[in-house]
Design a protein around this nucleic acid. Structure first.
Lengths: 119, 119
DNA sequence: TAAGTATATTGCAATATTACGATTAATATT
DNA sequence: AATATTAATCGTAATATTGCAATATACTTA
């Protein structure tokens, strides 16, 4: 084993394939309604700043900033500095990449016989 | 506000739409590589039991059982009792539902102009 | 019936996540 | 220059998640 702790709340990512870890990481970025809301707002407005989202979502500025950082870290959004503000928007290439990773998982089901399963 | 605690680690789900909460909940089910691995194994074998996954994933039986429960709770898989064993498989209807919820989010980007964003 | 097998649940420890106030750093305004 | 605005970071509190040993429960087999 690679870790020294005993049975605790950390993911044993070395047990899984890169793809599995990547899909999980991408899904985790969407695994909070505030981040889904941020993305939907970005889809609607095409670009926005932290302050817009504070108004829109009703969460504190620090909280929004934290969610934006998570989305930025996974690469699904990007921010460009505009004076004292930061303009956030979708990162098209990464968006498509994650879309294919997660979508690819779901598409695999169609290939199988849906009736040979316990039903 | 609906909650009484002050600034803590609980999601303020009343601030978000039902769809946003649903997408986040579905994404959360996929937000761990072990659960992605379980789903991929189910896609490959079409059905499996807890013991198979203990062999396959190298996690403890209790841990697998816990991940299976989470997937079962969101409805993406279902289990049928078969003697002392439980046969798990994809739930086709719920699978398609989640596929559309998450896929629908990603599909929204195509409609917009990808060049009007900060790039 | 007793021992074995398979899975779920409980209890616990460790880490992660969520949220926000306060502060900091940087730009903008007066 | 002094003040205001904007966003990131820090510190802290509370809850959630991950993982496993031990136990409980249910079925199977000898």
């Amino acid at each position: 084993m690679q870790y020294t702790y005993m049975h605790m709340g950390v993911t044993k990512s070395d047990l899984f394939t890169d793809i599995q870890n990547e899909i999980a990481a991408a899904a985790k970025a969407l695994a909070h309604p505030a981040r889904v809301a941020i993305i939907q707002y970005l889809l609607k407005t095409n670009a926005c700043i932290n302050g817009d989202l504070v108004q829109e979502l009703g969460l504190a500025q620090a909280t929004i900033s934290q969610h934006l950082r998570e989305l930025k870290e996974i690469g699904i959004i990007q921010g460009t500095i505009d004076g004292a503000r930061v303009n956030y928007c979708i990162n098209p290439g990464r968006w498509k990449e994650i879309q294919q990773q997660i979508g690819g998982l779901f598409d695999q089901y169609q290939k199988n016989d849906p009736n040979s399963c316990c039903s």
